[in-house]
Design a protein around this nucleic acid. Sequence first.
DNA 1: AAATCCGCGTTTTTT
DNA 2: ACGCGGATTT
Length: 791
Amino acid sequence: MDWMQLQRLAAEEAAHGPRAGPRAGSEAGPASGAGDPAALLEGLNPEQRAAATHPGGALLILAGPGSGKTRVITRRIAWLVATGRAQAWEIAAITFTNKAAREMRERVEQLLPARGAWISTFHAFCARLLRREIELLGTHTRDFTIYDTSEKNQLIKNLVKELGYDATRFRPALLGGWISARKNRGREAFEAAAEAQAEEQGIEAEVLQQVERRYAAALARNNALDFDDLLLQVLALFERQPGVRDAYARRFRHVLVDEYQDTNRVQYEIARHLASHHHNLAVCGDPDQSIYSWRGADIRNILEFGRDNPAARTVRLEQNYRSTGNILRAAEALIRNNAGRQDKRIWSDKPAGEPILVCECADEEDEAREVALQVRALQARGQRLDGIAVFYRVNFMQRALESALRLARVPYQIVGGLEFYDRREIRDLIAYLKLIVNRRDDLAFRRVVNVPTRGIGEKSLEQFSAWAAARGLPLSEALLHDEALAAIKGRARGGLQAFRELLVRLEPAQGVDAAVALDLVLGEIGVERWLGEMDDESGVDREANIEELRAHAAAWDRMSSELARALAEVETAGTTASATDGAPDADRPPTGLRGYLQEIALVNDTDALDAGSGKVTLMTLHSAKGLEFPVVFLCGVEEELLPHARALQENTSADPEAGVEEERRLFYVGITRAEERLFLTHCQQRLHFGQTSFCSPSRFLDELPKEVLAGGASDGAGDQDDGGALGVYEPKTPDATFTEGERVEHDHFGRGTIVRLQGSGINARATVRFPAHGEKILLLQYAKLRRVAKG
DNA sequence: AAATCCGCGTTTTTT
DNA sequence: ACGCGGATTT
């Protein structure tokens, strides 16, 4: 989200080289001894060391939460290079999120002078590979566009309409989901299931198939790939072109895959192909943290790794260096309720620490206020805000938390939750950029052909696109034919002509830096008029957004060219191996406009959260995986939310617990992010779709041992004064000062009657009906209410 | 072709 | 409650 931050980062990077990672402290050890193998192993326990120094062959690292997994992988990479077992560029390390990739890259760079290892997500890895090789498949050029989910839905919607179906009944997002599901899991295996499910929703299998076929064709026509295709096309390439497969398999002497429990079938196969020559495949993961089955992740990949690779060495990292005893105990007690897991110990020699606090709140506003107040209290006791995280199950919960934090003047940053790219002006500009790079992108064409308005309406556009379709031409190419325009009448023809000339003028932008291309577009389209015609009474500052985009693009240009320079040095200094040996010829991440587009397609801007930001971090539980914070708040620990109602539906008859168990793992992931303090909150009621619905505490709360909870049994120590903890929490005593129905007086509103009392302690509130002002909800802590005599 | 109005789905989770 | 898309106006 914070674009200025990225810009600053870029500046720093240019000035001082890579900055310290979020957990810089943990890598203090061998920084000085970079390249010295012995120094690289400093501070590792025997298991960690065994994993880091496994010489080759298959390696399975079963890593409990907080067991130093990232540390082991980064040290391993450095160790492989330092001991001459691999060149940096012969290593592929694959992560699941961009955050993880970024962190790993930074930490490896601290240990290792040489850059050049491919450290990225599966998707980024595949995109990079396809930029070089996709033309071998014959369907796309290397300038292919990557469609994100909303672009994909838009395309599907167009197709549904073209087929003459009603897009409200056949909802594009649903269709897209099924198409994606089919691509990701074994295609045949899932086919029947998806169709059955579709039928249930009143969508005929035939429609699904039709749309699916058209969608695949449209992607090819537009020279575009969706997220799933990035993976699938790599697999197709490897399968159809064994030579290419072998070249990469030879080149990547060592392949490492993190979060292996979350790989899907396609990713599994890609990893196997990559390791098919040297067989040095190291995977790392924790079956108890598998939380992506909805995305096709197959937990069997990790459970059966040993079966796939009989010679595999298994290393278990069980010592937890992160959390206090209480937190760890809670996590362990919880996860034990999952059936059929390998019994894995996690242990720590840390003291029990503070108890876990469970807080019942009246509603989501109350909950958010509670979090804000606790944050302030912690801050007053010297807790840094960037050591605090707030997690929630679903994105919509973000709102209440945000507004409470804003009200309490607590600075915060949000991870995930798209926002920025959803803004119209940003999407328009990006569509222009995409169209410049990939002239076949009809989706982008349609988006911007009338932006700013050129008098081109739906009717004339359909007429025009019919002409193009009849000849199998992309829209931007059809535009060059006078014959196509001749058929269009009125104002629209002039508009199309103007657009044609515009595209011609934008042509030179193809090879330039992103910021330069953006400026060219902005200069050509006439920002004034464009902004003028977008309704601005909503108060959104579109000009500022555009400015942010420019700053972001400029920052990216600087960073990528810097990186390219560094890599060029590696190349000239390093080996002269030929291309057939998989040497890093032309092996640089894309730069310029093309690179920028790839970047923003794959990297959510909010991935770059800043550890030194001085801000509280908000994110979903899914985003939280792999991170750690001294203080964690976990909100909405309620039935229907955690476990989520939808997950409960997915308890199939075959596996009646599957849905709940994944939700339990999600909770487990959340708990184990906390180092010192953990707060769990749940509400009595919550606003859902504008309606209040009642909530009961999550079943998972009952699975936590009472002894680790504040106010829990035994422990002897005074839970009651609660001061044993940070002294933060107010005891939950009912506020006896007022009773419902009582007459009270308020400084501002005058006299009224208490309708309702809610909450307690610092959250005690009264709903008071004032004759002159209606009903008001007052925080008793602040509102000075006086009891008045009746009559 | 743009402006306004109405009804419906939204809220799992991410690349 | 809200925003989007479709349908209806002007």
